[in-house]
């Protein structure tokens, strides 16, 4: 029987037709980094993402399919700041791919290239899922995307020197388009400055900083703990006495119920904003993601 299992496995191996792909494999933890790698690398990279737009990147499982992808990756691009602490260490441990381990050139932590917000003074789990290195949701500010694009472009050129010129060109082309778009967004976003928001989770610190929004409450009592009835009632009375808010915002992978409850009682518009690319037809690219965020917020202002 042991030989049977061996034969079975070898057969499986032989049956797998190995695609002859000369391109550079990028394993991204989140879709925005896969999208960014493709913007810069074009046809020279094939990028896949561990999570998709409908998924909470804090909490996925270290699935077998992901282990197989990390095994073959040339570059792993993740947000870091402990966003993926529940699953990435297991993937890296199981994948037996020494070139993508943290500290190696094959591992890029994007949040290390921006100024991190919400770095806690003290770390205690009674505060919920706190991230000692600061808020990890750095992709929500287009100015951060620019900084990370530069780092990613340089890393691609370094690792795949044969295509370095293409990557450099790809990067400068992307930056040119991105800078134009960012100027436009900055201009459009002016009316949002100073507006108050209620957020589901502390996912929006970078968006709020960029747009000058003021977060008056989060639906979660502490980060990572689901909203409770008592906490929602507190927010309701806070909003009634404290002058309200312009938006209640949550991510596509978060429950709509608590926000709906609050929106019905306060009349504040409830928005489900894209946290990354790929969640809908309107958010197929990084450019469209920020367009969509502004369209939604300005649309209900």
């Amino acid at each position: 029987m042991k030989y049977n299992s061996l034969i079975f496995s070898i057969l499986l191996l032989l049956l797998t037709v190995q695609e002859a792909r000369a391109d550079f494999r990028v394993f991204a933890c989140e879709p925005e980094w896969a999208a960014l790698a493709e913007e810069i690398g074009g046809d020279e990279v094939s990028a896949s993402s561990a999570t998709h737009a409908m998924q909470d990147p804090h909490f996925i499982e270290a699935r077998p399919s992901l282990i197989a992808q990390v095994r073959k990756a040339d570059l792993v691009v993740c947000t870091g700041a402990q966003l993926e602490i529940g699953w990435l260490p297991m993937l890296l441990n199981k994948a037996n791919n020494p070139s993508v381990l943290p500290g190696k050139k094959g591992f890029l932590e994007t949040s290390a290239y921006v100024r991190r917000l919400d770095i806690p003074q003290s770390v205690d789990r009674s505060q919920g899922d706190v991230h000692p290195q600061g808020n990890p949701h750095v992709q929500m500010n287009p100015h951060n995307i620019r900084l990370i694009a530069v780092a990613l472009g340089e890393r691609l050129a370094e690792l795949d020197s044969a295509n370095a010129t293409q990557f450099e060109q790809g990067l400068s082309h992307f930056l040119q388009r991105w800078d134009e778009a960012t100027q436009e967004w900055d201009k459009r976003a002016k009316p949002l400055r100073g507006k108050k928001v209620v957020a589901y989770h502390k996912s929006w610190a970078y968006l709020e900083e960029w747009l000058g929004l003021e977060e008056v409450a989060t639906l979660e009592p502490v980060p990572g703990i689901p909203p409770t009835a008592a906490h929602l009632a507190n927010i309701l009375s806070l909003l009634e006495t404290g002058g309200g808010a312009s938006f209640i915002i949550y991510a596509p992978y978060q429950s709509a119920k608590p926000g709906t409850w609050l929106a019905e009682r306060t009349g504040i518009p409830l928005l489900v904003l894209p946290m990354t690319v790929g969640g809908s037809k309107q958010t197929a690219t990084l450019f469209e993601q920020f367009d969509e965020i502004l369209n939604q917020m300005l649309g209900v202002l």
Binding site: L83, P89, P102, Y113, H143, T182, W210, G212
Partner: peptide, 29 residues
Amino acid sequence: LAEQSAVAPSAAATEEPYESGSTMTSSGR
């Protein structure tokens, strides 16, 4: 923050990042 952003709407773009160029990692372990 509000004051800062009133003057410089894109703080992140103009300021030097804290850990620019660092490959120090926290997520992989």
